[in-house]
Nucleic acid binder design. Structure first.
Lengths: 242, 242
DNA sequence: CAGTGGTCTAGACCACGTT
DNA sequence: ACGTGGTCTAGACCACTGC
């Protein structure tokens, strides 16, 4: 592994085990460079990682400090702000199953061709899946995906995880996602499949997901029963003044 | 401005105006270093900014490429994933006003002292505000903040923006935030103040906001009328494999 | 003014992908 | 094998903070 990553890991460990206590200053970059027998640039690359993880922050002219919530943050082993699909989310805790309500190939609507950056002649898969958690329905997901990316999409893949198929079978990497989250009254499908009555709202997540190269690969709308899910987000502070 | 930031700005401009078209490779780092009369390290710091902004990505051994959604992304002048308060969000578009329904000093509940990392003997402000957009109520915000941070909180400040007060008057910087977003049935207050009937749900955002040094400064629950707001998030792809 | 982090250089070698 | 990005060095000077 790269030296600066190893240094970052060492410092991260010292933060989580209390060797470097919260709210105190880290040793100066020069000292760290001496200790790790490296240059200041390399120390800075290591510290940059920890800043990105929100464990420390620097003030020019003053020092580099450990955030007061750093110890608890460093326990989380994965990065900030993940885009975990529903299948991975409940992994190990419960049993998740998908029922494919619809799977057809059609042409995109004008909106969809804009969101997915497609020509009007390029077909899309139109898929509706009902998700079950431990046998109980908890969400309906309506996905539209370009057929040229998801070739040979089978029902079997849809019943498992599309994300797994993309990354492991097609070798494509997921990049960013835009999401719009809102609350809504239950519509006919919600009432039928999610067993919502008129006073039971849904949490709707409308999202466009991009591959690493910036090509959109999915536009979807997911509606959750209000008592069956919430969205957690972590927003990192910007360094730049407004 | 630092040279690497200027270089990043120049390249960003070339991406947005099409000088460097989407899906193509950027000039090699050596070439860029020559053009800008600088070293490769400085070019890399410039490119790092653009990667963080999700405009480009690199593949070792291959090149640095422009994402296909880069041009549209570079139009957004502000950074990714902002934590803008409601006041700033609607700036220039509409008129936002706050009515303070409650403002008292009390001791924290066990949950609150955990979220806010407070001793049970440290007082908190308990504040309930009703927000109006163009004269119509659209959300109720219940905030709990440590009194030791927000000294001398006046009703006047509450009617404007707490965030503005923090950053400009107290010189404190906002850092990260954790949010939990969910949908819910309207409760008594929602029905009374947001004029929700029983079939009109609310979008609830429960959040803990931290200062730059990691100290929590606000735990709040905001309930929006379902037809008056949605949450937009942008999730950046991780570089690391799962 | 002393001490800290921020930027920058002009090289070098390594790791990876492509051919 | 070659060309790309990734890492790393051993310095230098600048910008800011705090005494």
């Amino acid at each position: 592994m790269a030296k600066y990553k190893e240094i970052a890991a060492t410092i991260r460990k010292r933060i989580s085990d209390g060797t470097y206590p919260a709210k105190t200053a880290l040793p100066e970059q020069i000292k760290l460079a001496q200790e790790f027998k490296t240059s200041r640039m390399t120390i800075q690359k290591a510290l940059e990682i920890l800043m990105f993880e929100d464990l420390i922050y620097s003030k020019q002219g003053s020092g580099t400090f450990i955030k007061s919530n750093a110890a608890s943050l460093s326990q989380l082993d994965t990065g900030i702000n993940q885009y975990i699909g529903t299948t991975a989310l409940f992994k190990g805790k419960s049993e998740v199953r998908s029922q494919v309500l619809e799977k057809k190939l059609r042409l995109p609507t004008p909106d969809e061709s804009e969101y997915l950056q497609l020509d009007e002649i390029e077909a899309v898969y139109d898929i509706i899946r009902l998700r079950f958690l431990d046998g109980k329905p908890y969400s309906i997901e309506h996905s539209v995906m370009p057929a040229k990316i998801l070739k040979n999409l089978t029902k079997e893949i849809l019943e498992k995880s599309i994300y797994y198929y993309l990354e492991n079978k097609l070798g494509l990497k997921i990049g960013s996602a835009y999401r719009k989250i809102s609350a809504d009254k239950p519509n006919d499908m919600d009432q039928k499949y999610l067993k919502c009555d008129l006073t039971e709202p849904v949490l709707q997540v409308e999202q466009t997901v991009f591959l690493q190269n910036g090509i959109p690969f999915e536009y979807s709308t997911t509606r959750h029963r209000y008592d069956q899910g919430s969205i957690i987000t972590v927003t990192k502070g910007n360094g730049a003044p407004a």
